[in-house]
């Protein structure tokens, strides 16, 4: 809990840095109509895909900040030497990270969905998928960052490690939204996302903790 509070406090004092992924998210989505033409039917049809790919990239971009500064200033060593189980501390840090990077996406997503002409019913589903999906992105991403935080050129490898693992989230989240947009029932996909979320929450902190130990040694 204290670590969660600390990270939120740090994020508050570094507001500008944490606003970047959000800005990036909006920018990427703006590029699509410019590239594909602004025909409303086309945009409405591909909106779920666009929003989710952009969310994936924005999540990727923000991942590095989970452990980077802690690694650089030695706080990470202190975290690993703490008397508390590292996996729990990792979970707290990932929570904090999601609150400052994932949650804002949730707030701007309705606006973007409206701009892309997504029907109202689909918007609610979109928000639900973002709510369930982005924490998974943070959890899986944390493993990748933990593996690469000690490297000088970790960025490119990070995307190679993490993006393939994002595939299931992308598939189910985008298709849930699409289902809702075309009037079908998206609940099957939503349940799958929920299952992924539970799985990621229970397994990822352990892998992340192990990877962090590897990275500081």
């Amino acid at each position: 809990m204290f670590l969660l509070r600390r990270d939120l406090l740090l994020a508050l004092r570094n507001r500008a840095e944490y606003a970047m992924p959000l800005l990036f998210f909006v920018l990427v989505i703006t590029m699509f109509p410019l590239a594909l033409g602004a025909s409303p039917e086309l945009l409405a049809r591909i909106a779920p895909g666009i929003i989710w790919v952009a969310a994936l990239l924005a999540a990727m971009l923000s991942l590095d900040s989970i452990f980077r500064s802690d690694f650089d200033d030695g706080s990470l060593e202190q975290i690993l030497l703490s008397a508390h189980p590292v996996a729990v501390l990792v979970l707290a840090k990932v929570c904090a990270h999601w609150l400052v990077t994932g949650l804002p996406l949730l707030l701007v997503a309705p606006l973007l969905a409206e701009m892309l002409g997504m029907p109202g019913a689909a918007q609610a589903t979109l928000l639900l998928t973002i709510l369930l999906g982005t924490p998974i992105l943070s959890l899986i991403g944390a493993i990748g960052v933990a593996l690469t935080v000690g490297l000088r050129k970790g960025g490119i490898i990070l995307s190679l490690l993490v993006l393939p693992l994002y595939v299931p989230v992308l598939i189910f989240a985008a298709s849930a939204t699409e289902n809702a947009a075309t009037g079908f029932d998206p609940s099957a996909q939503i349940y799958m996302l929920l299952a992924f979320l539970f799985l990621a929450t229970s397994l990822s902190p352990w892998a992340t903790a192990a990877a962090l130990r590897m990275s500081v040694s």
Partner: peptide, 14 residues
């Protein structure tokens, strides 16, 4: 294939 390349890439980077 991407997963394999990730493994190889990570190994080469450390």
């Amino acid at each position: 294939l991407f997963l394999y390349l990730g493994v190889i890439g990570l190994h080469n980077a450390i």
